[in-house]
């Protein structure tokens, strides 16, 4: 494995770490703390959970093409997270809410340091994953 490949591997590995921490964190909130996920949370989960399983397939053996299959998921998840965050901030009108079944998406369940809520953490996680995945594309081609 040459230096460029090492760089790619490290980035994919880091992206997987972010996805794994996010997935386990989401599962902790819903399964251990029993906070029911709202509908928008589910859309983000649909994008995040597969990354935890797909990215390792690109690590062993190293296959940079895994970016092709994971980047669209990360981008979609980023979009849902952004919408969710804007909703929580009140920048998206309540009528735009796609929520049902009594779990309001606009409700802030958990907030740390006064601003770090779950949609923002999700947005940051997707952003990091996108940055890491996108940066491998430039490294691959000589």
């Amino acid at each position: 494995m040459n230096t460029a490949q090492h760089g790619t591997w490290n980035r994919l590995f880091l992206a997987w770490l972010v996805a794994a921490v996010s997935t386990l964190g989401a599962l902790f909130f819903s399964e251990v703390m029993r906070l029911p996920p709202c509908e928008l949370c589910w859309w983000q989960r649909i994008c995040m959970f597969p990354l935890m399983l797909l990215l390792p397939l690109g690590l062993f053996p190293l296959d940079p093409r895994v970016v092709r299959y994971t980047l669209p998921l990360a981008l979609a998840g980023w979009g849902f997270a952004l919408f969710h965050w804007l909703l929580v901030l009140g920048l998206v009108p309540a009528s735009a809410q796609p929520c049902r079944r009594g779990i309001p998406c606009g409700e802030v369940g958990i907030q740390w340091l006064g601003f770090l809520n779950l949609p923002l953490m999700s947005l940051l996680a997707f952003s990091l994953i996108i940055a890491l995945l996108a940066s491998t594309r430039q490294k691959v081609s000589p």
Binding site: W9, F13, W16, L17, A20, V21, L24, P56, L59, F60
Partner: peptide
């Protein structure tokens, strides 16, 4: 790399 991955996975799950 395999060791690193396995270690990370174990640490995450244990945590």
């Amino acid at each position: 790399q395999k060791l690193l991955f396995a270690l990370a996975a174990i640490v995450l799950l244990l945590g």
